[in-house]
Write a protein that binds this DNA or RNA. Sequence first.
DNA 1: TTCATAACTGAACAAGCGTTCAAGCGGAAG
DNA 2: CTTCCGCTTGAACGCTTGTTCAGTTATGAA
Lengths: 196, 196
Amino acid sequence: MARKQGSHAEITGPKLREAALRLFAQSGYAAVTMRQIAGEVGVQVGALYNYIPDKQTLLYELMKSHLEEVLDALDVELRTGGAEERLRRFVHHHIHVHLPRRDAIRLAYDELRSLEPQNFAAIEKLRHAYENHLQGILEQGVAEGLFRVADLRVTTMALIGLLTGLFGWYRENGRLTPVEVEALYYDLVRKAIAAP
Amino acid sequence: MARKQGSHAEITGPKLREAALRLFAQSGYAAVTMRQIAGEVGVQVGALYNYIPDKQTLLYELMKSHLEEVLDALDVELRTGGAEERLRRFVHHHIHVHLPRRDAIRLAYDELRSLEPQNFAAIEKLRHAYENHLQGILEQGVAEGLFRVADLRVTTMALIGLLTGLFGWYRENGRLTPVEVEALYYDLVRKAIAAP
DNA sequence: TTCATAACTGAACAAGCGTTCAAGCGGAAG
DNA sequence: CTTCCGCTTGAACGCTTGTTCAGTTATGAA
C-alpha cells in the first residue's frame, strides 16, 4: 500500500522535474549532468532513478507534458468565435501561458535535437498541432474576408516565429508588463495580415 | 619558411571550421566531441590542436567571424537611402546572407549560453549592433512619417524574431525559392509597421 | 513494538571527455 | 641526396559521464 504522508516521493518527484526543466533550459540538455540536478534537488544521484528510467526519458516527459498541457488549454480557448476573436485569444493564450513558463517553451523549441528519433517524432507531432491551430484561424479569417494572407503556411510559421521570439528577450522585471507586451504583439500580428 | 604546397594546413584548417560549424549547429556545442569533429575532418584528435587552442575558443571564433562578416556587409548595404528602401535591403540582406549559412546563424542564437562570460559579452555586443541597424531604420521611417511604431524596442525585437524564425523551418528544397520567401516576409514586415 | 518496504546513500562501473605530447612521416629547401 | 620541420599519429593523462546496486535509514501499517 502506497504511503500517503511522510514520504519524500511526493516532494522529490516534482522537485526533480522543476530542477531539470530549469537547468535544461538554462544550459542545454547535453551540458547538464545528473549530478547537477541531484544537487539542486538536495539528494544523491542514485536517488533520481527512483523517479525516472533515464535522462533522455526525463527530457521527453518534460517536453511532452508541457505541450499537452498547452494544447489542451488551447483547444478549450479556441472552441468558438469569429476569426478576429479567436486570433486575439490565440495571441493572449500564447503569451500568458508561456511567459511564466519560459523554461518549458525554450525546451520545446531548442532541445528537439536532443531527442532520440522516436521521441522526436512524438514531440514534433504536438508542435505541428499547435501550429495548425493558428493556421486554422488564418484560414477562417481569409474565408470571412477579414485577413489577407499571401501564403498560408509561410504566414503561419512567420507569425509563430514572431510570437515565440518574445520569449528570447522579454524580462520579467523589464519596462513592460505582460499585458502591454501582448497588446503590442497583437497589434503587429493584426496589421500584418489585415485585409485592406 | 612556410610551406605553400603539399602542406595539409590550408586544407585541414578550413575543413575543421566547416565541420565544427555544422556539427555544433546540428547537435549543440556540448553534445559534439572533438573526436567527432576530427572524424569529419579525416584526422586524429590531436591534430586539431595545431589549429585551435581549445574547444571553447573554436566556438567563439566561429560565432565572432560570422557576425563580423554579416555586420560588415550590412554596414555597406545600409549606408544610403530612405527608410523604405533601407528596410527592403535589410530584409533582403538578412534572408539572403543567412539562408546559405543556416548553421552559422543558429550558432549565433542558440549557443550564446555555451560561451564563457568574457566571450559571451563580446558576441552579445555584436548581436546588439545588428538589432540596432533595424532599430535605426524604424526610427528613420517614423521620422519620415512612413512607419507607425507603438514601441520602438519591442517592434525591433519582434521583427528580428519574425525574420529569424524563418531559419528554423525553411528547407532548401521546399516549395518556395528564397526570392519568393523574401517577398512574403517583406510584405508581412511592411504591413506590420505601415503608417495608416 | 515489530515489521515491511519506500526512499536514499555511497561507492563502484565502464565508457567517454578535452587536452597533451613524444615519436614519426613526408614534402620542400639547400 | 640530405636535412629540416610542419603536420599528423597514437597513446596516454586525469576527470567526468550516465547508470547500477548492495546496504542503510526511517516511516506507516499491523
